[in-house]
């Protein structure tokens, strides 16, 4: 890797990335720049249509960007297909194949890295019979098979698009556990889009919030939480200067606001650290808030903002 020695290895690096579907449509991604350090489990969140699926498909080498560049594990997207796993939003699988044949296909198409025992174990944990046809499986069972196919190739980077959307809570918990154990054991980088915020807080240590085609918030979750404060008190949003007010709303006679601190907060305000859900909701509700990327997540040599 050609980056400086202090920077950790980078799994994903976007520079001015843009993708537009057709000339008249608004761009799905627009001048999007960020860096995802290797080994992180990153949540990709954003409102519907924010470009989450587009970003994941670009990284998987399924689409060409219309602008900018994207480096995946230091190479162009699609160059290291054997080391990148991708799970599409609708979990496509061949309906006419049995589970055993689906896994066999994984072995045949990933000859250098396939771990048959591991893939088989993931399927067996779901009480699925290898002879069953994919056609006859429920949505959640299909997700399990699709995940077994993705994990069986022992990827260095996993791109998961809404992986858990159609799983029951128990299966979701089990599969998340499998996924996270694998990631922790092998240092796999995971980038996963999801709407289930409570879940993300448990499993992810990194966050990329997409909005308007760009990263609005990016970095380690702890760092991001620490950079923000939830304040309550009497006063107006203007009184909170020089802090950046992400969102404020009236509460009783005063207001509650999520701020990005610039120095110490006036003790007249009651402060607490926001939860991840509060942080995300505040940013989703105020699309005009300035972007914040922690140093490890920016592509520029200098951090733009602290």
């Amino acid at each position: 890797m050609s980056s400086t020695s202090t920077t950790p290895a980078v799994a994903l690096e976007a520079t001015g990335l843009g993708k537009r579907y057709g000339r008249k449509a608004a761009p799905a991604l627009d001048d999007c720049s960020f860096r995802l350090p290797a080994g992180r489990i990153s949540a990709l969140v954003g409102p519907n249509g924010a470009g989450k699926s587009t970003l994941l498909a670009l990284a998987a080498g399924l689409l060409h960007p219309t602008a900018g560049t994207l480096r995946v594990l230091g190479a162009a997207p699609g160059e290291l297909r054997d080391r990148v796993a991708y799970l599409g939003q609708n979990k496509p699988l061949y309906p006419q194949l049995t589970i055993a044949d689906t896994l066999r296909m994984g072995a045949e198409l990933n000859p250098s890295r396939w771990d048959a025992a591991y893939a088989a174990r993931i399927v067996e944990e779901g009480a699925l019979h290898p002879g069953q046809k994919i056609r006859g499986l429920s949505g959640g069972q299909r997700t399990r098979v699709a995940l077994a196919l993705a994990l069986g190739k022992r990827p260095a980077l996993m791109l998961l698009d809404e992986p858990m959307a159609d799983l029951d809570p128990l299966a979701r918990h089990d599969l998340m556990g499998t996924l996270m154990a694998d990631a922790a054991e092998h240092g796999t980088t995971v980038l996963m889009s999801s709407h289930i915020v409570s879940e993300l807080a448990d499993v992810c240590d990194h966050l990329l919030l997409l909005g308007g085609g760009r990263i609005r918030l990016g970095g380690g979750i702890d760092d991001l939480l620490a950079a923000h404060t939830l304040v309550t008190g009497r006063g107006t949003a203007a009184d909170l200067a020089p802090h950046t007010v992400v969102e404020s709303r009236p509460a009783g006679r005063g207001l509650t606001a999520l701020i990005r601190r610039e120095g110490p907060v006036d003790p007249a305000w009651q402060t607490e650290e926001p939860s991840l859900e509060e942080l995300l909701l505040a940013h989703l509700r105020s699309p005009d808030a300035p972007a914040l990327l922690t140093p490890a997540t920016t592509t520029a040599p200098l951090a733009v903002q602290a």
Partner: peptide
């Protein structure tokens, strides 16, 4: 169906 994309995200271009 998206199964082509499934094949393209194995080790096959």
């Amino acid at each position: 169906n998206g199964t082509a994309q499934l094949a393209w995200t194995q080790s096959v271009s």
